[in-house]
Design a protein around this nucleic acid. Structure first.
Length: 429
RNA sequence: GGAGAGGUGGCAGAGUGGCCGAUUGCGCCGCCUUGCUAAGGCGGUGUACCGGAAACGGUACCGGGGGUUCGAAUCCCCCCCUCUCCGCCA
């Protein structure tokens, strides 16, 4: 969430932020916060004064002679009643402010392009060349089904639509990709993490997925736990509520985890194949660092490059887009998506999403650090990006590296993880 | 699932109705001392909000929420969490 003090001084910027993000209903939250805050601020000095009076009077009592007590106690009881009403109002105001403030979205950076949805994202760069096949390329699901690598029918029977079962070499490739991603990041100093997949509401709230993302989340009502949609949730929450030392920052983590998404409201969208599924594996990079905008931006570029390096190693053409305001989520200040070429879509498809939040998540998580040179503790900055999400990344791998006979070329980088093999599958066509 | 113990400041750990925003130790900061990469002495050191230029003053906060009381870290109720033992099981 935003700093309330900042919000007080910059209400127009906060309103403009919600508008740029195409969240008109959240503009109201800004106004509501300001109203409630004004009321609370007007109330506070009175309340503090009354409490102070009552408190000091209470201290007197212990020293009073029994005869004087009666009178004193009567007065104290009056004060108590007077206080009670105001305190109730104070409590309600506090709760409302917290609630409304949590709805106010993070402010998108100036460099975030204007736009209503993902069609208006702005291409930043394009890397690699789209291959000229010299034959009619097939979609990943055709290749995979022909090779016996995937079974959508049985998956749907046992688990519903948008599920899949991987077999054989594709299951191995899936794992190789993830392992490669982890190794790449560990080589760059990121600490590998195997996090909880079921988390409390506080972690969902802290990372900004709730309120707002409830429909996307599988929830175990009985236990009050949520299946994570990304390791961003547990890993960013890792130091929630902590007061860190500046010396231990930045914290860099890489987590491989299963991810679960309900994909509500996407009926009829991307129904075929491995693109949009309820469950997948993802390797995620998370950085927690000091409250320094320039450093956050530098980290942002770094984590995008990390993902690009993976795609280059996989010999895949991709492009980087700057996500526009309307396609930005509540907590993000700026986001780059990386889209990898998918021949079956005849388009680039999103495979990575790199976000910076500044202190928006960390404030919700109460994650601060003590400055090296003293002074007040500051709220951390956080960032994250995909390294590899599979099976989605298998789409470009299969489709771009397919050969006319239905076998699949293995990029050199992945061969050590596949027993040295350079080709997967048997000739089919 | 059954039984018990406990959740206090950056950490450890006292405190069982007013003298407690909280002893003490560690850590950290400052000063001093000292013949050796260490030790010692003294002082300081929570967070948030309100007021103030500041010094400082006020209020809230001892897992969370209710309650008793003139007054609660301390008593009562509910919830959450952690630990130990037993059971069960990967």
């Amino acid at each position: 969430m935003l700093d309330l003090k900042w919000l007080r001084e910059n209400p127009d910027a906060a309103r403009a932020a919600a508008i740029k993000k195409r969240m008109p209903d959240r503009v109201a939250a800004v106004d509501r916060v300001l109203e409630l805050d004004a009321e609370l601020r007007a109330l506070t000095p009175t309340l503090d004064g009354m409490r102070s009076e009552q408190k000091s009077a209470s201290k007197e009592i212990g020293r009073l002679a029994p005869a004087e007590r009666e009178q004193f106690l009567a007065r104290q009881k009056e004060r108590k009643v007077e206080l009670a009403a105001l305190e109730e109002r104070e409590k309600a105001l506090r709760a409302d402010i917290d609630h409304q403030l949590a709805l106010v979205p993070n402010v998108p950076d100036a460099e975030v392009p204007e736009g209503k949805d993902d069609t208006e994202n702005v291409e930043v760069r394009r890397v690699g060349t789209v291959r000229d096949f010299g034959f009619a390329p097939r979609a990943h699901y055709d290749i995979a089904e022909a090779q016996g690598w995937v079974d959508f029918k049985r998956a749907a029977d046992m688990a519903g639509s948008r599920n899949y079962i991987l077999f054989g070499d594709l299951a191995l490739l899936h794992d190789a990709v993830l392992r490669f991603a982890v190794d790449l990041m560990v080589g760059r100093g990121f600490v590998p993490v195997d996090p909880p997949l079921l988390v409390r509401d506080s972690a969902m709230f802290g990372t900004g997925f709730v309120p707002g993302g409830e429909e996307q989340t599988y929830r175990c009502e009985k236990d009050g736990l949520n299946l994570i949609g990304t390791a961003e949730v547990p890993v960013t929450s890792l130091h929630g509520g902590e007061l860190l030392d500046e010396a231990e920052l930045p914290k860099k983590y890489v987590a491989r985890s299963a991810c679960f998404r309900r994909e509500a409201g996407t009926y009829g969208k991307d129904t075929r194949g491995l693109y949009r599924v309820h469950q997948f594996q993802k390797v995620e990079q998370v950085i927690i660092d000091v409250a320094d905008k320039a450093r956050s931006i530098a980290h942002h570029h770094t984590i995008v490059e990390n993902a690009e390096d993976l795609l280059r190693a996989f010999e895949l053409p991709y492009r980087v887009v700057a996500v526009c305001g309307g396609d930005l989520g509540v907590p993000q200040a700026m986001k780059y998506d990386i889209e990898t070429w998918m021949p079956s879509r005849n388009a680039y498809g999103e495979t990575h999403s790199a976000s910076r939040f500044y202190d928006y998540q960390a404030r919700r998580l109460a994650m601060r650090y003590r400055q090296k040179d003293g002074g007040k503790p500051l709220v951390c900055h956080t960032l994250n990006n995909t390294v590899a999400a599979s099976p989605r990344i298998l789409i470009p791998l299969l489709e771009n590296h397919q050969q006319a006979d239905g076998t699949v070329h293995v990029p050199a980088a992945l061969r050590p993880l596949l027993g040295g093999r350079g080709v997967l599958g048997r000739p089919i066509w």
